[in-house]
Design a protein around this nucleic acid. Structure first.
Ligand code: MN
Ligand code: MN
Ligand code: ZN
Ligand code: ZN
Lengths: 142, 142
DNA sequence: TTTTAATTTTGAAATCATTACAATTTTAAA
DNA sequence: TTTAAAATTGTAATGATTTCAAAATTAAAA
């Protein structure tokens, strides 16, 4: 099955009608590791769809988040970034280059918190902030 | 030593001149568990300081965050909330009542992620989102 | 104590990501 | 084809935060 069909199926599975824009947005989010913001997605897709409006990007993203297709990421920033990957994982944000890296969690429930009885968990966000390898190297090379 | 003196000392320890507003902001943040936003802090302190400007609140908060006195919390919201507690802990946000609860982490390094060699970690945010006890009870009582 | 400079606070305006909304276009059903 | 529903667009509004310059306060120097 080709990639576009898989994207369509995922949308349908979440009760979302697979319009062109929605397919393109999800396709892009699934294809990249950069965790783009709405602006970046807009600029990328505008090349193919010249009539595109940024409102449509926001519409699609909000719909996706509401239906659980993608996740919002907000780490010490004024803007929301989006993640199309749906395996459980953590994020690392470099304060020098602003890149957002994926981090694998070692075990299924390696995050253990108390006080969680009778509480219904719907979502989880694990963010680390610091300086990435490349930026550390850049600093020491000076 | 009285509480205000402790607040002053903490500010001085972080190279912050302990002005009245700064003392009041930190004092309030240390005294509450509600993780207030700038607006809430402003309203609270305005009662005692009628000439207070909300810009001063933002100034103090930004200064504190930069110096590591307090932490910013951003969970799926358009607004920043602030935390004066400095022991390592996680947060739980109830999507029904918007309350922000503290969660104790069971062990020192119970969050284990791979891919962290050569990376400098400066900060950590662990957020869970869901429905709190009280709101679950409210729903089932209907 | 006065003078002076540095710091803090204030208030109004600007910023900017996101949302609201109504008009237009597209899609799909009848 | 006609008609209704859904999706897309563009513009205006929103609202939290920031900018910035003036005013007030504080601290240091004379
Ligand atoms: Mn990710
Ligand atoms: Mn807390
Ligand atoms: Zn970096
Ligand atoms: Zn609740």
């Amino acid at each position: 099955m080709d990639n576009t069909q898989m994207i369509k199926d995922e949308l349908i599975k979440h009760n979302i009608k697979p319009s062109l824009i929605r397919i393109k947005v999800l396709e892009y989010l699934k294809s990249t590791k950069e965790h783009p913001n709405a602006e970046k997605i807009f600029k990328k897709l505008s090349k193919d769809i010249p009539t595109l409006s940024i409102t449509s990007i926001y519409n699609a993203l909000k719909l996706f988040v509401g239906k659980g297709v993608i996740k919002e990421i907000m780490i010490q920033e004024e803007e929301i970034r989006y993640d199309g990957a749906n395996e459980r994982h953590a994020h690392f944000k470099c304060i020098k280059c602003n890149k957002l890296y994926d981090l694998k969690l070692k075990c299924r429930s390696c995050l253990e918190v108390t006080d969680l009885n009778k509480v219904k968990i719907l979502d989880e966000h694990i963010y680390l902030v610091g300086i990435c390898k490349k930026c550390i190297k850049k600093e020491t090379d000076l």
